[in-house]
């Protein structure tokens, strides 16, 4: 058994200790070593670009009125090119859920927490890796969708320097990453892929419609603007609507993300693995 009892390396043993940077590195390895993650990420990017280009080509041929801004009954050039945002949000959200909840469904969480028994660094590491990957790929996707979309629209296309355009394009990446982190945190809070995905979808895509349907008109709009979907939408809108302003929208949206991450941290810290 000499192989077993041999010291870990013969010369200059490395400083073995857990650091936040090392946990981030570990989560980076975990992220890229799962085929399902990589495929879901590719799907998310494809949805963002594909739907944006499709909507742009239709809006171009339909000879939409020129200029950025909302056009009743039709999408403006910016909104058309970013039309994939909703579906990409679904995909990034699902990716976030999978990245965390699959640790519970497979039992991997017990290995992860044996390596990082202080627990919270694991959640921070996952969020850091996920947010970085989602921001970069989300930004690439929304930039490609926007530039490609404007090329397809041709006449009346918007440019990066038009008011609100840069915010809408970069903001889309922020909303994508935020939705993903929300999914991740829900995965940690609920510890179940189906429960977290249905909660996420319900909150992001159904709640607004249901609220509008059920609440009386007089204050329905006032409530709905504070829902995560509408608050996030306010941030990526090119021109300010009658709801929240873009920065207020971002603040409310991120407020939800932070709150659920807080819940996830509490569950991770307080409960048996």
């Amino acid at each position: 058994m000499s192989t077993v009892t041999r010291p870990i390396v013969s010369a200059a043993p490395p400083r073995l200790r857990v650091t936040q940077a090392r946990v981030i590195h570990s989560e980076w390895i975990k992220f890229w070593s799962l085929r399902s993650t990589v495929i879901t990420l590719a799907v998310a990017v494809t949805l963002m670009i594909g739907i944006g280009l499709l909507a742009s080509s239709m809006s171009g041929s339909g000879a939409a009125p020129a200029g950025p801004g909302p056009n009743p009954g039709d999408l403006g050039p910016v909104d058309a090119s970013l039309a994939g945002l909703t579906f990409a949000q679904l995909a990034f959200g699902t990716l976030g859920v999978l990245f965390m909840a699959s640790e519970y469904s497979t039992g991997m969480i017990r290995s992860s927490l044996t390596a990082v028994p202080k627990r919270l660094p694991l959640l921070w590491g996952k969020i850091a890796v996920f947010a970085a990957v989602a921001l970069v790929t989300g930004l690439a996707a929304s930039a490609i969708a926007f530039t490609g979309g404007q090329a397809l629209i041709g006449d009346g296309a918007a440019s990066w320097t038009d008011p609100g355009v840069a915010r809408a394009v970069i903001g889309s990446a922020v909303i994508l990453a935020g939705s993903g982190v929300l999914g991740l945190a829900l995965g940690a809070l609920l510890r179940s892929t189906p429960a977290a995905i249905s909660t996420l979808f319900g909150v992001m895509f159904l709640l607004s419609g249901v609220a509008q349907l059920l609440l009386p008109d007089s204050w329905g709009d006032r409530v709905v603007q504070y829902l995560p979907s509408d608050a996030g939408g306010a941030f990526t809108a090119v021109s300010v609507g009658d709801g929240l302003g873009p920065w207020a929208g971002l603040a409310v949206f991120l407020g939800y993300v932070v709150a659920v991450v807080g819940g996830a941290a509490w569950r991770l810290r307080r409960f048996d693995a």
Binding site: I8, V9, P14, R15, L16, R17, V18, T19, R22, V23, H25, S26, E27, I29, K30, S33, S111, A115, V116
Partner: peptide
């Protein structure tokens, strides 16, 4: 194993 090792700096 690589991901486990990375947390602690195991080469």
């Amino acid at each position: 194993l690589l991901a486990m090792a990375a947390t602690t700096g195991v080469p």
